[in-house]
């Protein structure tokens, strides 16, 4: 296996130009969509089947009464332990040699279990193709020695592409520097490979708590509950089974002896 590739999105450098969003659309030939009113400069409100990079525009009220921008270019996290990949019953969702998570469009049959299993609401069903879509980490580009289109287009190096271990080292230094500059809430999200979901291969530097960006604090792989939930179901099966056995047996013996 090749060294794990990653994208590090440093939101403190994002200027909200949306070059990443446009580059993603162009490279991946994602069609146009009707814009929607979100109450902010953000468009769209969420990831769609044609929007895999999405710059979030969050307006935070300041104590002095002004508003502050929090900008974040969001993307599929390519989780090391991915809910969508665990959920896929066809093998269409696969882990590449670079550690990224990709949906093979020729195999997906559109069951949509991955859509329900993503703790970030990334995977989206496309009604035209009947399959699930999401960011592929520009699978074609990375297999040809190029970085993802979004990282390539970013003019401020808010999105950086490289080997995961290198990027984590860089991000750790950057967050310390920001904290020293007074950004008290500056923190990394998903950089820790011992943390939630085994670490994210697209991880972030945030300037506020994850909830401010609508990110879950401690996302989990939903399949972790399979065994426990199945054991409870087995208990229920034993109860109704015993009920049925008792019903047929008890009455049966009585009646049979009546007619014997």
């Amino acid at each position: 296996m090749a060294r794990t590739l990653a994208m590090f999105t440093d939101t403190s450098l994002c200027i909200g130009c949306r070059a990443c969003q446009v580059a993603c659309k162009q490279w991946n030939e994602l069609g146009q969509e009707v814009p929607e009113w979100t109450g902010t400069y953000q468009n769209h409100a969420h990831f769609t089947d044609k929007t895999f990079r999405l710059v979030r525009f969050i307006e935070e009220p300041k104590p002095q009464g002004q508003m502050a921008w929090l900008l974040m270019s969001d993307v599929c996290k390519h989780c090391a332990d991915a809910g969508c990949l665990n959920a896929c019953p066809t093998g269409a969702i696969e882990r590449t040699a670079f550690g990224t998570v990709n949906i093979n469009q020729d195999v997906c049959n559109g069951c949509r279990y991955c859509v329900s299993a993503c703790p970030f609401g990334v995977v989206t069903f496309n009604h035209d193709t009947g399959t699930a879509h999401k960011c592929s980490f520009c699978n074609d580009r990375i297999h040809n020695g190029l970085g993802p289109a979004c990282a390539k287009a970013c003019p401020t190096e808010s999105i950086q592409f490289g080997f995961r271990d290198d990027l984590v080292a860089k991000a750790t230094k950057r967050v310390a520097a920001l904290q020293a500059m007074g950004f008290k809430e500056a923190q990394l999200y998903g950089a820790d490979s011992q943390g939630f979901l085994g670490g994210l291969n697209a991880f972030f530097l945030l300037l506020a708590k994850p909830a401010t960006y609508n990110l879950p604090d401690n996302p989990q792989v939903p399949q972790r509950n399979v065994v426990r939930d199945s054991v409870f179901s087995l208990g229920s099966a034993l109860l109704v089974g015993l009920g049925a056995i008792f019903a047929f047996r008890r009455r049966g013996e009585g009646k049979e002896s009546d007619h014997a």
Binding site: P89, T90, V107, C108, G110, C111, T129, G130
Partner: peptide, 13 residues
């Protein structure tokens, strides 16, 4: 299914 003709893909894995 989104692509009913591919239902057999469920039995690939």
């Amino acid at each position: 299914l989104g692509v009913p003709t591919r239902f057999m893909n469920m039995l690939r894995v």
